[in-house]
Computed example of a mutant assay.
Amino acid sequence: MKNILLLFSFIFIYNNTFSQSKVDTFMTAFLKTHNFNGTILIERHSKPVYRKSFGFANLPFKVPNTPATRYKVASITKAFTSVLILQLFENGKIDLDAPVKTYLPDYKGEGEKVTVRQLLNMTTGMHNMDEGTNLDSALKNGIPQYQRPYTPDQLLTGFCSGPLVKEPGKEFDYNNADYIILGKIIEEVSGRSYEQQLNEKILLPLQMTNSGLLSQHKLIDKLADTYFYRDDLHTLVSDLPVYLENWYAAGAMYSTADDILKFSNALFYGKLLKKETLKQMFVSGLGEYGLGVWVYERYEINGKMYTIVKRPGSIMGAQAMLFHILEDNATIIILSNTGTVSLDDLSADLAKQIVG
């Protein structure tokens, strides 16, 4: 029996070492043709495979990115919001199939027609608060919903309370408004601010000491500056001026790769939610979207099919990816401060280096 255990241990160590070598070789070639700034962290079967940082957290001053660099993680925030809602569901404080009006009785939108579950899986049929927003319009007219400071209540009233444009439950539409409403539901049901609930239920228990909510009035140590690529100028430029707190429960978090891994491990090992609840979260619905995450039930990697749970994030130069392979118990985390690389493509390519 002892010899068998030693053999399995040897095979496991060999496989991880081989995977690390493959990732190193891939990234060496990748960086010759791509301008990537950020941190990559890969873990498989609870063991580290790869952890490296590239490029600069501040381009003018040439401050290097390191594993300790904190990044704006954009819509990875939605996975945290989903967990907070589902924790309240487990505690009997929220019915996922109850209408919004149940928890926000003063809500001005058509809250009697939309359920909490439809907010989570983005099938509300609400007007999309970011509709028509692109670089051309932003440069000419600004981004009204993000370039003036708003409280969560003002966001709810001003951008998330319009009439429905589609029948709820019938069509997937990626809409930040859905998660702003969820943030307000968390506040009303818990009796705490979204930030307090986030800290108490996730960040502090998991010792995620390098994570939190961004705000214009906070100075965050070791936070990477963000830059996006202007096609018309053929160069990287600083992100447009915005109030990042306006993304609120839809995208206002910052974190490190190590902290996102703590969250990922706690989620997939059942430390944040019960197994039965995770099954609901990871159901691939319309648009292959679950409850706060994308779920691809037949995703090919090196000729085999796997289930992928993916949570990307993107706000101008802030790019983030949490990519988990369920059957292989492997996690790829990519955090970047420049919008120069497709993290969908990069995570898929990295998966090929470590699986099979």
Rank of each mutant, 00 (worst) to 15 (best):
D232Q: 05
A249V: 11
K310V: 12
V341N: 00
I315G: 02
V189S: 03
A138W: 13
A68K: 06
Q118M: 14
K262I: 10
A68Y: 07
Y107S: 01
G162P: 06
I42W: 00
F228D: 09
A249K: 04
S342I: 12
K108T: 08
D136F: 15
K279T: 14
E187S: 07
S21L: 11
A224P: 05
F61C: 04
K352W: 05
T25Y: 08
T66Y: 07
V189F: 09
G55S: 10
L139N: 06
K274S: 13
T331K: 01
D345R: 04
S19K: 01
I332A: 00
K32F: 14
R117F: 12
L155H: 03
S19W: 02
I42P: 00
Y269G: 02
N65A: 06
F159A: 03
N3P: 07
F8W: 02
K108R: 09
D24Q: 11
D106F: 15
L326M: 10
T17F: 06
P205H: 02
P312E: 08
N329R: 00
V49R: 00
K262V: 06
D231N: 13
P60L: 10
P163S: 11
S19T: 03
S342G: 06
G212S: 03
M305H: 02
N199K: 15
V341F: 02
F56T: 08
L86D: 06
L7R: 04
S264Y: 05
I334E: 03
A57V: 10
Y103T: 04
V309D: 01
A250R: 04
I333M: 01
F18I: 08
N246G: 03
N141F: 15
K72Y: 14
Q20R: 02
V49C: 00
S284K: 07
Y229S: 04
R192W: 15
K62L: 15
S21I: 12
F12Y: 02
A79I: 15
S336I: 08
H34F: 12
G162E: 05
L156Y: 12
D344C: 08
D106H: 13
K93Y: 11
M305R: 00
P105A: 02
Y248I: 13
E188V: 14
H234W: 07
K22M: 04
P168W: 07
R148G: 14
L346V: 03
D221T: 14
L350I: 07
Q319W: 05
T340A: 04
G212E: 05
S46C: 01
K279I: 14
N15A: 04
A68L: 10
L59I: 15
H234Y: 09
L350D: 01
A138R: 09
V114K: 06
K108L: 13
S21P: 04
I186P: 12
L7E: 08
L343D: 08
I308Y: 03
M27R: 05
D153M: 14
